[in-house]
């Protein structure tokens, strides 16, 4: 069996309150709750999806954006397959902090080759009319910082949410070229590795 598995770990980073949990909830359960609590530490949700005929389990890791929770979240960056850097278009500070988030991720996730690591940038809350960050500004930042894809989303209106997550999966599969190694979870693996197999009669 391949050392890589069909489990994709996708991590959401960004300032507190930019809507990471809402994006995840919208994508996985297609719900939106205006009264969501702050995330404490780290949580995740699984979402199964079919990509090019293969079943993939997408494990979306939601993190606490507040500075005080840094020590609770950073140990879990390691092993991520893709990082979704998120800001809110009505909060220019959250946009400016993207650089710090990227640095923090690369440092704690121990990414060997940061230039080829798949990041996707999400500008959330486009349902709010009072924007502080323009589309152009955001696209420029993406272009200058590794040429990563940029999505304008609204968890509230479900705008572009699925597209953003699917792009993340596509990026992982494309970059690591692992689609051909995927294991179909419906297939039964009869050769259990740790146990000795006996000869048949």
């Amino acid at each position: 069996m391949s050392a890589k598995s069909s489990l994709l770990k996708i991590i959401l980073l960004g300032d507190g309150g930019v809507g990471k949990s809402s994006l995840m909830n919208r994508y996985v359960t297609n719900k939106f709750d205006t009264q969501l609590f702050h995330t404490i530490g780290v949580e995740f949700l699984n979402k199964e999806l079919e990509v090019d005929g293969h079943l993939v389990t997408m494990q979306i890791w939601d993190t606490a954006g507040q500075e005080r929770f840094r020590s609770l979240r950073t140990p879990f960056y390691r092993g991520s397959d893709c990082c979704l850097l998120t800001f809110s278009v009505d909060d220019s500070q959250s946009f400016q902090n993207l650089t710090n988030w990227k640095k923090e991720f690369i440092y704690y996730a121990d990414v060997k080759d940061p230039d080829s690591f798949p990041f996707v940038i999400l500008g959330n809350k486009i349902d709010i009319t009072d924007r502080q960050v323009s589309v152009e500004e955001a696209q420029a930042w993406c272009r200058d910082n590794g040429n990563n894809p940029y999505f304008e989303t609204s968890a509230k209106d479900a705008t572009n949410v699925a597209a953003a997550f699917e792009e993340a999966v596509r990026r992982v599969l494309a970059i690591e070229d692992r689609s051909d190694q995927l294991i179909n979870t419906d297939t039964v693996n009869l050769h259990r590795k740790p146990k000795p197999t006996t000869a048949c009669c």
Binding site: V28, T29, F37, H38, T39, I40, G41, V42, E43, F44, L45, N46, W61, D62, R68, F69, S71, L72, P75, F76
Partner: peptide, 30 residues
């Protein structure tokens, strides 16, 4: 369906309001 994850050795200083009793937790033990 949300699963919370934390490191072993619980940090008392972090107010763990969000973690409710009806949520599964994973303790990572490095």
């Amino acid at each position: 369906p949300r699963v919370s994850v934390r490191m072993v050795g619980f940090k008392m200083k972090s107010p763990h309001i969000g973690s409710s009793k009806d949520q599964m937790e994973i303790i990572e033990m490095p």
